[in-house]
Design a protein around this nucleic acid. Structure first.
Lengths: 197, 197
DNA sequence: CTAAACTTTTGACAAATGTCAAAAAATGAA
DNA sequence: TTCATTTTTTGACATTTGTCAAAAGTTTAG
C-alpha cells in the first residue's frame, strides 16, 4: 500500500477509487496533483442555488448536507454526507445548469476539491477513470432509489426507523429539523415519533 | 446517417448513444451483433423479485414498469419506461444481487436485449463505452433524485400535477392504480384528486 | 460563564390521506 | 357482441400528519 505514505491526505480517496478498480500510478498522481485540500468551518455554503456547480468534494473529515428551498422558502434536506463520501450537487455538476440546491457543511470539514474541468480532463485522458465515475454514479443512484422507494412505501415512523437502523451515527450528528425534512415530515412529527420509540 | 439503413431496428438505440458521444463503427457493429431483438406481450414479467437481473432492455416500442411488493404484498410502482428508454432493475443489474423489483411490460413491446456479461465485455473492450454508461446513469440518477425530492416536498395533488405537466402522455397509457402507487398515494385518493382538477 | 441564538418538545386543533366496502364504468378475450 | 374481469369512483369514517404558538432545553460565541 504505497499510497498511504505517498499521499497521506488523499489516502482514503484513493482507497475508495482503488476499491472500485485499481488505478494506474499515473492516474493516482494526476488525481493528487489536480485536487486541492481545503478546510472549512461548519455552516459554510459551498454552493448556492442559482450558481453553477463547478466542483465535487471528497469529505476527509466532517459532515455536510444538500438542501433546497420549496416554494414557500422552507428548507428540505435531500442528502447527508460524511467521511469518505462525495459531496456534490449532482444535477448542476453533471448538466452544467444552475443549481436548485445548496451545499452546506454541518460540521467543520476537511475536503478534497476537484473541479469539473479537471474531472472532465481526467475522464478524457484516463479512460479507465470513466469506470470509477460510472460505478460511483451507480452506487449513489441505488441509494437515491432506495430513498424514493421508502418515501413512497413507508410511513413517517417506518422511515425514521429505517434511517436509524441503516445509519445510527447520523442521528447523533444531525439536528432533528434536518432529519425531519430529509424524511419528508415536519419536525414536530419527528419529535413525537422519537418519543414513542 | 448510415446507421438508419444499416441497422433499422437498432437505429434509435444507436441514436440515443451517439447523442451522448459518437460511437466508433466497430462499437456500433458490436452493439448490434451482441444484442437480440425480442417481442413480448403486455403483462410479461421480464424479471421477478428474487432473481438476479441478467439483462438490460431498450424499448423500441411499448411501455413497461418497475415495481416491487411492500411488506403486506402491495405493489408499488417505482418507474415507468417508454419508447427509447432503458428498462432495467438498476440495483440487481449493477450489484449482481437478487432483485427486490419486478420488471413487467404494460403494453406489447419490441425490445432490444443486452445481457450483463456482454455489456461488461463491451465496457472492457471499448473503454469509450463507459462514457455512455456513465452519462446514462447520471441522467437516470437526476430523474430519480427529482422524484425523491417531489415525494418529500409536494402534496399528493402537487405531485400528480407535476407528473401530468412533465409527462402528459403517461396519464393515458398507464392505469390509475399504477400511477397512484408511483406517487405514493392510494388509488382512491388519486381518483378524488383527478376529479378536483 | 452567560446571554443570545438556535433547537426540540408540547398542546390543541386542522387538514390531508388512508381504509374498507360497494357500486359504476371500462376493457378485453372468447 | 357479450360476459367475466379489471379498473375506477364513491361514501363513510379512521388515522396520520401538519400547523401554529408557546415553553423548555441546548449550544455557541463573546
Amino acid at each position: 500500500m504505497p499510497n498511504e505514505n505517498l499521499y497521506p491526505l488523499h489516502q482514503n480517496l484513493l482507497k475508495v477509487c482503488n476499491a472500485i478498480q485499481p488505478l494506474s500510478d499515473a492516474l493516482q498522481k494526476a488525481i493528487v496533483a489536480q485536487t486541492k485540500v481545503i478546510q472549512v468551518k461548519r455552516k459554510t455554503r459551498l454552493l448556492n442555488a442559482g450558481e453553477t456547480s463547478d466542483a465535487i468534494y471528497f469529505i476527509i473529515s466532517g459532515a455536510a448536507r444538500v438542501y433546497y428551498l420549496d416554494k414557500e422558502g422552507v428548507e428540505t434536506t435531500s442528502w447527508f454526507l460524511f467521511e469518505n463520501e462525495f459531496l456534490i450537487s449532482v444535477y448542476s455538476f453533471f448538466t452544467g445548469e444552475p443549481s436548485f440546491e445548496y451545499l452546506e457543511t454541518i460540521e467543520d470539514c476537511t475536503l478534497i476539491m476537484l473541479n469539473r474541468g479537471t474531472l472532465n480532463e481526467l475522464y478524457l485522458q484516463y479512460l479507465e477513470f470513466n469506470v470509477i465515475g460510472r460505478k460511483l454514479t451507480e452506487y449513489y443512484y441505488i441509494r437515491n432509489e432506495k430513498q424514493a422507494n421508502d418515501l413512497r412505501m413507508l410511513t413517517a415512523k417506518q422511515r425514521y426507523q429505517a434511517l436509524f437502523t441503516s445509519n445510527p451515527k447520523l442521528i447523533n450528528r444531525v439536528s432533528l429539523g434536518y432529519i425531519a425534512s430529509y424524511l419528508g415530515i415536519s419536525q414536530e412529527t419527528l419529535s413525537r415519533i422519537r418519543k414513542q420509540i
